[in-house]
Nucleic acid binder design. Structure first.
Lengths: 146, 146
DNA sequence: CTCTCTGCAAATGCTTTGCAAACTC
DNA sequence: GAGTTTGCAAAGCATTTGCAGAGAG
């Protein structure tokens, strides 16, 4: 539950040798304001002003390299970015019908995944891919099929 | 270990009301020849002749709708198509370094995944996303870093 | 003052679509 | 024939890149 502030992100960037610019400040502020959010690059672009999309991508990449943000793929669409979990990785459950995203502590799946992976000599990279399915409401019979 | 033949695929398509054309025949033949393969649309396009890419995508979609082929996402690149497992879904382990893909019977992960998902009211769609990591050789120290 | 970062604009990679002609049933 | 499927060419979306100028340290 450690609250991540925009300044934490800014400092993190600075600490990794990145320069602080207005664009980066805006993006950090936006991300810090969505601690639970999973934002697409387009969402980020929407949330800032006077910042070009290429700068958004480049900044998100910088944040990722600095270990402050993570990048996941959910479903067929665009990728999503979210704050790196301070303590404890998590897996994502994405409802393909309504888009809801639920975070699940990775420890729950970890054991099984590691077990399977290890028997094949694999070291799994903290599941960068979401599990796609349907949430309670959408899984109910007679709902938005396909 | 049921061997899937091109004719099985053709019949499957016909059974779902699709018409059989030269392009579809070629694609089915190619897929049946790669029972363990995970082909990208580009691979399929490469393996046939006189078939347009739009036709490749449309045919793969038809095969998917007919339940004969499945579509997964591995890593950042293009999607991959493979024959639908006759008995038993499987999960994919993809090595991000060398690209190796290993199939794992889903039953192994299933329990854990379902358990986690259910506690959140989720019904997980047979993991359409691969688990990305590093295989034995690539995970070895002093190898292709990053 | 140096080197990084930015906006712009265009290019890329993968996939989808509109349309008239070709073909399957 | 009726309706599906095709190739072509172009559009679409998400993301990346080259470049010269603006800005950070």
């Amino acid at each position: 539950m450690t609250m991540v502030t925009a300044d934490d992100l800014i400092d993190g960037l600075r600490g990794s040798g990145y320069r602080i610019t207005e664009a980066r400040r805006q993006i950090c502020l936006l991300l810090a304001g969505e601690p639970e959010g999973h934002l697409s690059a387009a969402d980020v672009l929407d949330g800032v002003s006077g910042v070009d999309q290429s700068t958004v991508y480049r900044t998100l990449e910088a944040l990722e390299r600095a270990g402050l943000v993570e990048h996941i793929h959910m479903g067929h669409g665009a990728g999503a970015y979210h704050l790196a979990p301070a303590g404890g990785d998590h897996h994502h459950l994405v409802c393909e019908a309504c888009g809801t995203v639920v975070d699940v502590p990775l420890s729950r799946v970890r054991a099984a995944v590691d077990d399977v992976a290890r028997s094949h000599g694999f070291v799994v990279d903290t599941a960068h891919f979401a599990l796609v399915g349907r949430c309670t409401s959408c899984a109910a019979p007679g709902t938005t099929s396909q």
